[in-house]
Lab assay of single mutants.
Amino acid sequence: GHYRIRINGREFEIRGISEEEIRHLEEALRNGADEKILKEIVDRLRG
């Protein structure tokens, strides 16, 4: 998958993330885990 997200007015492209991972992120966001989720995304993109 290849997705664009906007955070604090800046747009980011996220590549190589699966539909299942996105559902997991959405679930966590609904549970209020904003900073933790951003850290997970950044860590994943770093490799």
Rank of each mutant, 00 (worst) to 15 (best):
G1Y: 10
G1L: 07
H24F: 15
G32H: 07
H24A: 09
E27S: 12
R46C: 11
A33V: 14
R44Y: 12
R46D: 07
E19C: 07
R46G: 15
R46M: 15
E26P: 00
E13R: 03
R15L: 05
R23H: 09
I5H: 00
R44H: 07
E35I: 11
R10G: 02
E26L: 12
V42G: 03
A33Y: 07
I22A: 06
R23W: 09
R15V: 10
A33D: 09
K36N: 11
G9K: 01
R6W: 15
R15G: 03
L25W: 05
R4V: 14
Y3T: 02
F12W: 12
R15H: 13
G32S: 05
I14E: 00
R4P: 02
Y3V: 04
K39L: 15
D34H: 13
E40N: 08
A28C: 09
E26G: 03
F12E: 01
K36M: 11
K36Y: 13
I41Y: 07
S18N: 06
V42Y: 09
H2D: 14
I37G: 05
G32I: 07
D43Y: 04
N8P: 00
L45N: 03
E13G: 01
F12M: 03
I22W: 13
V42H: 04
E21Y: 05
R4A: 02
I14A: 01
R30P: 02
E35R: 04
I7K: 00
E19K: 10
I22T: 03
G16S: 06
N31C: 11
R44I: 07
E13Y: 15
R46E: 09
H24G: 12
G16L: 07
E21F: 07
R15M: 06
E13C: 15
I5G: 01
E19H: 08
I17Y: 02
E27I: 09
R44S: 08
R10S: 06
E40C: 11
R30F: 10
L25Q: 00
E26Q: 08
I22Y: 07
H2E: 06
E21D: 14
I14N: 00
I14M: 05
L25E: 00
G9V: 01
R23I: 09
V42L: 09
F12I: 07
V42D: 02
H2R: 09
I37V: 13
G16K: 04
R4D: 01
E13F: 14
E11A: 03
G1E: 07
D34I: 14
R10E: 15
H2K: 05
R30D: 06
G16E: 05
L29P: 00
N8K: 03
N8E: 04
D34Q: 05
E40R: 07
R23F: 12
E20Q: 09
I7Q: 00
E27R: 10
E13D: 05
L25A: 01
E20S: 10
K36C: 08
